[in-house]
Amino acid sequence: MFDDFNLIQNLINALQWGSFYALIALGYTMVYGVLVLINFAHGDVFMVGAYIAFFVASFVLSVLGLPGWAAFIITIPATMILTSMVGVSLERIAYRPLRRKGAHRLYVVITALMCGLILEHANLAIFGASRKAFPPLIEEHVYHLGGVTFTNLKIIVICAAIMSFLTLQWIVTKTKVGMAMRAISYDKFAVPLMGIPIDQIIVTTFILGSGFAGLAGVLFAMSYPILEPYMGALIGWKAFIAAVVGGIGDIRGAFLGGFLLGAVEILVVAFFPSSYRDLIAFSVLLVILSLKPTGLFGIAKTTKI
């Protein structure tokens, strides 16, 4: 079975699959970095993103009657904006009041879990259990190069993930908002003393994290065009684990963790029956974590809030 193993082919598949994990892991890691909160609703924010994309795309295609490429160009930013509003609402309605009261972290995490369940079940209640078929937006082209097969859609997904990473990395290292995010993760107490409204930074964090989950939602729906209310649950958990393996709180870690998880899964499927996929993938991650409990990019923090 090694004969037909094609490294480049698997690498492309791994990058494409890992891109989804990476884009979602980002949101987990940013919110954790700023609030020390594991936002367990984040996987469901991704799911909501896919549904938002579905409605926006359907609207643009059938109501406005625009062609697919126009729907594609409109759906991506519209979904990112609308999904980030979902994230911001969660912060406003659920997390901020608890923060104001100084609630213990456990309660906030449980609240996040419940928010996720509410999003899933609200979706179920409003739209029913039937799956939604996502309309094709761009014509899929299959390219063959050497022995490698790939599609334009896969390339778009990988490029989107890489561009998101570069954008975020720039924001976090070069802009004042990004610096403020890093400052909060180090010493929340001193941030308002710099004249920085903490809530504004937290909202920005949720905008970015949810916006990229929305982007993952559009791209996922385009790649695997069947939507159902629980689609965010498992992928959300996996992205969270990817973020932890990468070193939670670190953006590079989220991306590396996401791609790593994608690669492990693709490799397992290349050599074993696909039912082994999650078992082996999680075992590998377990080994990595037991060797380096702070994650690949994590540093043991001496000063922590």
């Binding site: 180090y186 010493d187 003393l193």
Partner: peptide, 13 residues
């Protein structure tokens, strides 16, 4: 502006 007790500089930056 306050220079707080214990300095509270952002050590990661």
């Amino acid at each position: 502006a306050l220079v707080p007790e214990g300095r509270h500089i952002f050590g990661n930056m």
